[in-house]
Simulated assay, not measured.
Amino acid sequence: MRYIFLAIGLGVLIGYQGWIRERGIRWNSRLQTVWLLLLIFCMGVSIGRNGEVVRSLPLLGGKAVLFAVMTAIGSIAVVYILSTLFLEKEGKK
C-alpha cells in the first residue's frame, strides 16, 4: 500500500515542480491510456475466468445501472442546490 502512495507522491512532486516538458506530458498522456486499457483488459480476463461472476452478470448489471443512475441524479441535485445557494443570479450583483 505504501508503494501506491509513494508513486502518487512522486508523480505529484514531478508534476508540481514542472520537471517534465510538453513533449513528456504528451507521452505521459499516451502511456496513461495504454496502461488503463491494459488494466481494463486484465480485469475483463479475471471476470471472465470467474464462472460465478459471469452467471451473476444480469443481476449485477441491473444493480450497477441503478447505482450509476442514482449517483448521477444525486450529483446533479447537489450541484443544483449548491449553485443556487452560492452563485449569484444573472440579474443580481
Rank of each mutant, 00 (worst) to 15 (best):
R2Q: 13
R2Y: 02
R2V: 10
Y3P: 04
I4Q: 14
F5C: 05
L6V: 03
I8D: 03
I8M: 02
G11F: 02
V12T: 01
L13R: 00
G15V: 01
Q17W: 07
Q17I: 02
G18W: 02
G18Q: 01
W19Q: 05
W19E: 03
I20K: 03
E22K: 04
E22Y: 12
R23D: 14
R23H: 04
G24T: 00
I25V: 07
I25H: 05
I25D: 05
R26I: 14
W27L: 14
W27R: 05
W27V: 08
W27K: 03
R30W: 15
R30N: 07
Q32P: 08
Q32A: 14
V34R: 07
V34W: 01
L36W: 10
L36Y: 04
L38G: 01
L39R: 00
L39N: 09
I40R: 04
F41K: 11
M43T: 09
G44S: 00
S46W: 08
I47N: 09
G48E: 12
R49F: 09
R49K: 13
N50D: 13
E52N: 11
V53K: 12
V53Q: 05
V54T: 12
S56D: 13
L57S: 07
L59W: 15
L59N: 10
L59I: 08
L60T: 03
L60W: 12
G61A: 14
G62F: 08
A64G: 03
L66Y: 12
L66E: 15
L66M: 12
L66C: 07
F67C: 12
A68S: 06
A68K: 02
A68W: 13
M70K: 03
T71D: 11
A72W: 08
A72T: 13
I73S: 12
G74K: 08
I76N: 08
I76Y: 07
I76L: 11
I76P: 02
A77F: 09
A77N: 03
V78Y: 06
Y80K: 12
Y80G: 07
I81K: 08
L82H: 15
L82V: 10
L82M: 13
S83P: 01
S83C: 00
L85A: 10
L85M: 09
L85R: 11
F86K: 06
L87N: 05
E88F: 10
E88K: 14
K89D: 13
E90S: 07
K92D: 15
K92S: 11
K93S: 07
